[in-house]
Structure formats: structure tokens, C-alpha cells
Computed example of a mutant assay.
Amino acid sequence: MPDNTVLVLVGSLRAASVNRQLAELAVESAPAGTTFELFDRLGELPFYNEDIDNDVVPEPVAALRAAAARAGGALVVTPEYNGSIPGVLKNAIDWLSRPWGNGALNDKPLVVIGAALGRYGGRWAHDETRKSFGIAGPRVVEDLTLSIPTGTLDGKHPRENAEVVEGLNGVIGKLVSEIG
């Protein structure tokens, strides 16, 4: 039975990514009784290929699926690349959607947030990510979102922006309340 563990996925592989900073801030801000587990191995996943999705999947895939199975929900933190989902995140969605209809995040609450250049803060990518995950099986919490234009951070860490911290804490609290 899943507990109050939240799987955290980051759609950017860059070490200094604002989205990674947001994910780390979420991990640090987890309410008492809840663990936010950052899965930091999306770059190790092979491209989804049904020929290798069998009883012995590659180890990074098995680790991702096990982390998702342990979780009661998921927080996805992603930038926007060329108006859409980063490839590494889409690949993770494909691996997590299998076996079809019985993926490790099936029916679990999932929220998508993040930051990106431009005045919309990655909303197109967030919408596409919610759509893809919604088809893949999790219960996407549509009314929970946080899209941050990176310019509003003035090059500072998200924890230094009270409005971002407040928004993130609101998302975290509502996501945790959806786990049950």
C-alpha cells in the first residue's frame, strides 16, 4: 500500500536548473509525516522500447518503477523546451505507463509545476505533461499548478522569493491531502 511518499521527477537534467532547485525546495518543505523522494536518474533511462520492456527491464527503469510504486503520489517539476515537454520527461512517462492500464502511478494523484523562460513560465509544457500523464494512468490534479517565469526570480534561488515559496507550499499541501 502506498504511503505518504511523493515521487518527485525533474524534467531538466542540468545541475543548476531552476526546476531542480524547485524540486529540492519541495523535498526540503515536505510536511511532517510525508517524504518527498527525488528520483534523479531520468537521464539513465533508455528510450522506451517495447522490445526491452519485459520481465527483465534495464535497472534504471526498474528503479523508477519501484520508486513510483512506493509513492502515494507524484510531483513533476519541468521546464518547457521549444514549447513542449523535455524529451527525458516524456520518456519517463512512457516507461511509467507500462504495463498499460497498470503502471506504477496508476490512479495516484500527480501535480505538474515548474519554471521556464518567457512570461508564461512553461504553461504549454505543463499542459502537455498533464495530458500525457493523464493518458498514462495517474490521476492528474488539474486545478493545482505553479508556472513561474524564470525572469521573476532575478537569478536567485526560488527559496528567496516569498511568493514562489508560498505557492509551492500551497501545491505541496494540496497534493499531500489528495494522497489517501
Rank of each mutant, 00 (worst) to 15 (best):
A26L: 06
A26R: 01
A26G: 03
A26C: 11
A26Y: 07
A26S: 09
V27M: 04
E28T: 10
E28P: 11
E28C: 12
S29R: 13
S29P: 08
S29V: 03
S29N: 14
S29F: 10
A30E: 03
A30L: 02
A30H: 04
P31K: 10
P31I: 05
A32F: 14
A32N: 11
G33I: 12
T34A: 08
T34M: 04
T35K: 12
T35S: 15
F36S: 01
F36M: 07
F36R: 02
F36T: 06
E37D: 15
E37S: 13
L38V: 07
L38Y: 03
L38Q: 03
L38C: 03
F39Y: 08
F39I: 04
D40P: 08
D40I: 06
D40L: 11
R41C: 08
R41Q: 15
R41M: 06
R41V: 08
R41G: 15
R41L: 14
R41F: 07
L42N: 09
L42A: 11
L42I: 14
L42K: 07
G43T: 07
G43V: 11
G43F: 07
E44P: 11
E44L: 14
E44R: 12
L45P: 15
L45N: 12
L45F: 10
L45Y: 06
P46D: 11
P46T: 02
P46I: 08
P46K: 08
P46E: 05
F47T: 13
F47D: 15
F47E: 05
F47V: 08
Y48F: 14
Y48P: 00
N49Y: 00
N49L: 00
N49P: 04
N49T: 03
E50L: 10
E50G: 04
E50S: 14
E50M: 01
D51M: 04
I52D: 04
I52Y: 13
D53K: 07
D53V: 03
N54M: 14
N54A: 15
N54Q: 14
N54F: 15
D55R: 09
D55G: 13
D55T: 09
V56F: 08
V57K: 10
V57G: 02
V57S: 07
P58L: 00
P58A: 09
P58V: 05
E59A: 15
E59G: 06
E59S: 10
P60V: 08
P60S: 03
P60C: 04
V61P: 01
V61E: 02
V61N: 00
A62C: 03
A62K: 06
A62Y: 04
A62Q: 07
A63G: 10
A63Y: 11
A63M: 10
L64E: 00
L64T: 00
L64V: 09
R65F: 05
R65I: 01
R65N: 01
R65A: 02
A66K: 12
A66S: 12
A66Q: 13
A66W: 06
A66V: 03
A67R: 01
A67W: 00
A67Y: 00
A67T: 10
A68P: 03
A68E: 02
A68M: 04
A68W: 02
A68F: 05
A69C: 04
A69K: 13
R70V: 06
R70F: 09
R70I: 00
R70K: 12
R70M: 01
R70H: 06
A71V: 00
A71P: 12
A71L: 07
A71E: 07
G72L: 00
G72S: 01
G72Y: 00
G73F: 07
G73Q: 02
G73I: 01
